[in-house]
């Protein structure tokens, strides 16, 4: 039985659809990310779950309770904002205890919960400080436990790490996942950062223009993108226009060079412009008997730290190949003739 359920949820702003027929079922304790570019409707959907926006149509239930039109302060849903939204006039302890104070909990109970929460984020010594005395990462930790202090049914996080620097982002996302698993709370996480979504989530909902493009585990989303949008948005991808030679055998040509895919094309696929999709990390340098091989000229080499991206011009098409940056790696030079190979299983046609 689903814990959080969104059924045919739509939202329009001035006749412009922001969310279009959104359907989702999340289990108790599941971590689901909404991933997509700006304006794709992910935050609007989250805000509808929180009650800050009302759906134009559709239904939102939590634990079988219809909350579609319940006001935000009656939903018992915790939310973490991108801007932290800590109350500047309150100490850290008062911020964390605010949700308990407004529902009339005793001081003893509030203090106990505040201590528990501070312990959870290892900020026990910051009790009496004001938000401005904390770093961005610390403030967001406090915002997280403030949302958790009311023991919400669901935790919503709206791009909580966007305002932080890269190193803190990685640290904090691990902490978010640890706390979420420790408390077993159903969590919806909005992000435009694919790395965040893939590393944190049990399932990812990829959204574009208000619609759900694909729902799946991080591995499904990355390895088997259902649409061109997902393939392009999640990770790096080479999309090469090809000529179909033999649809049942999945045989196509990149320029004049044959490539075999593991999946047969049906006739209808062959009638459309078809493109070969392959991730840069699936390409290997050199010629390999029995694999797909492409020959081209090295166009550019980009140093990206742990990986090196080589772009190869194959009969006018640029293909990217990622290689681990090892000391023993022999790098080609720009302008060299270069061969790459890949498995038939590694590529697919879109």
């Amino acid at each position: 039985m689903s814990f959080l359920k969104l059924t045919h949820v739509n939202k329009t702003f001035a006749d412009m659809p922001a969310v279009d027929d959104f359907n989702l079922s999340a289990e108790q304790g599941e971590f689901v990310s909404f991933l997509g570019p700006s304006g794709c409707g992910k935050t609007t959907t989250l805000r509808m779950i929180a009650g800050f926006e009302l759906p134009t149509s559709g239904k939102i239930t939590i634990a079988d309770q219809d909350l579609t039109y319940v006001p935000p302060n009656k939903r018992n849903v915790g939310m973490v904002f991108q801007s932290y939204a800590l109350f500047p006039n309150m100490t850290i302890a008062d911020n964390i205890g605010y949700g308990l104070k407004v529902v009339g909990k005793s001081k003893t109970e509030i203090n106990k919960r505040v201590d528990e929460m501070l312990d959870l984020i290892h900020l026990e010594n910051f009790r009496e400080r004001y938000p401005y005395q904390l770093s961005g990462g610390q403030q967001q930790r406090v915002a997280l436990v403030r949302a958790l202090a009311i023991r919400p049914q669901i935790l919503l996080l709206d791009e909580p790490l966007s305002a932080l620097d890269a190193k803190i982002r990685v640290e904090l996302r691990q902490e978010i996942r640890r706390i979420q698993q420790q408390l077993g709370i159903t969590t919806i996480y909005v992000t435009h950062d694919q790395e965040e979504a893939l590393s944190l989530s049990d399932r990812v909902v990829v959204m574009s223009q208000g619609r759900m493009e694909q729902v799946g585990t991080p591995s499904e989303i990355y390895t088997y993108p259902a649409t061109e949008f997902v393939a392009k948005f999640v990770g790096q991808i080479n999309l090469l226009p090809v000529d179909v030679i033999n649809p049942p055998e999945g045989l196509v040509k990149v320029g004049q060079q044959p490539v075999r895919t593991s999946r047969a094309l049906n006739r209808a696929d062959g009638a459309h412009a078809v493109r070969l999709a392959i991730r840069p990390e699936e390409l290997n340098p050199g010629y390999l008997e029995g694999a797909n091989n492409l020959t081209g000229k090295v166009d550019s080499i980009t140093y990206l730290g742990s990986i090196i991206r080589v772009r190869i011009d194959v009969e006018g098409q640029l293909i990217s190949m990622d290689m681990f940056n090892e000391r023993k790696l022999k790098m080609p030079a720009v302008g060299d003739i270069f061969q790459v190979n890949f498995d038939a299983d590694a590529c697919w046609l879109i």
Binding site: A50, G51, F52, P71, P72, N73, K74, R75, N76, V77, G78, M79, F81, A85, L86, F87, Y98, G99, V102, V103, A143, R146, A147, I150
Partner: peptide, 10 residues
């Protein structure tokens, strides 16, 4: 701030 307050039940 307003939304956080609402969200926390105020």
């Amino acid at each position: 701030w307003r939304e956080a307050s609402d969200n926390l039940g105020a």
